[in-house]
């Protein structure tokens, strides 16, 4: 039986808010911090539906999403593509953690040229064995950017949550504030860059 217009509207009203997450140039530590919510993760599962995310292994968006959490900055063209998709699909985009907000540890290479990085990684590094001296150049490998960019230098970002990783408590308070349309007002102890 087809649903009526009223039924469809009611279903959309009842639908849970949707969350998407991604790890770009990050270490998955921020995702671990989400799991660090412990038993509150059950509460979160009650509150929201997970869309594209490594947590449910969905690789593509199923539709518009309310909140997108981005871990990691952009170090290659693949990161940029994913980030732009997130911006397109997410009503609110949150930079999660130091890599997303300022580049983080991957940005250590930003003081060096790309050429120097490649030479160190594939030719001159103390543990490298590469007699041909070739630097991987397969079209399957995403091209590296000239440096690592924080997310807000690539797309518009609505909120920044620093930390390496941000504590589970700060992620919880951020999500619940955004889901309940409350202003984000984290206490002093929760804003940390480490």
């Amino acid at each position: 039986m087809m649903e009526t217009v009223q039924e469809r509207e009611q279903r959309q009203l009842n639908r849970k808010p949707r969350i998407a997450t991604a790890s770009l140039a990050g270490c998955f530590g921020c995702h671990m911090s989400v799991l660090d919510l412990d038993e509150r993760i059950l509460e979160l599962a009650e509150l929201v539906e997970f869309d594209r995310s490594p947590i449910d292994d969905l690789k593509d968006f199923t539709g518009p999403v309310d909140i997108g959490l981005i871990e990691g900055g952009c170090c290659n063209e693949e990161n940029v593509r994913v980030l732009r998709e997130f911006r397109k699909h997410c009503r609110i985009l949150v930079s999660l953690g130091d890599c997303a907000t300022m580049g983080g540890v991957p940005a250590l290479r930003n003081t060096l040229s790309l050429q120097e990085c490649f030479r160190e990684a594939y030719c001159d590094g103390p543990t490298v064995y590469n007699p041909t001296g070739l630097i991987p150049n397969d079209p399957e490998i995403p091209l590296l950017l000239d440096r690592v960019y924080p997310c807000h230098e690539v797309v518009r970002v609505d909120y920044h949550l620093p930390g390496c990783p941000p504590s589970a408590e700060s992620i919880w308070q951020t999500l619940t504030a955004l889901l309940n349309n409350r202003p984000l007002d984290l206490p002093y102890e929760l804003i940390k860059y480490d």
Binding site: M102, N110, T111, Y159
Partner: peptide
Amino acid sequence: LQALAYRHSIAAPKYPHLWPRR
């Protein structure tokens, strides 16, 4: 410097990083 940034509620600097070589 970090503490002053905390006190002034800086979540992320809005300016592009210079990444100088030091």
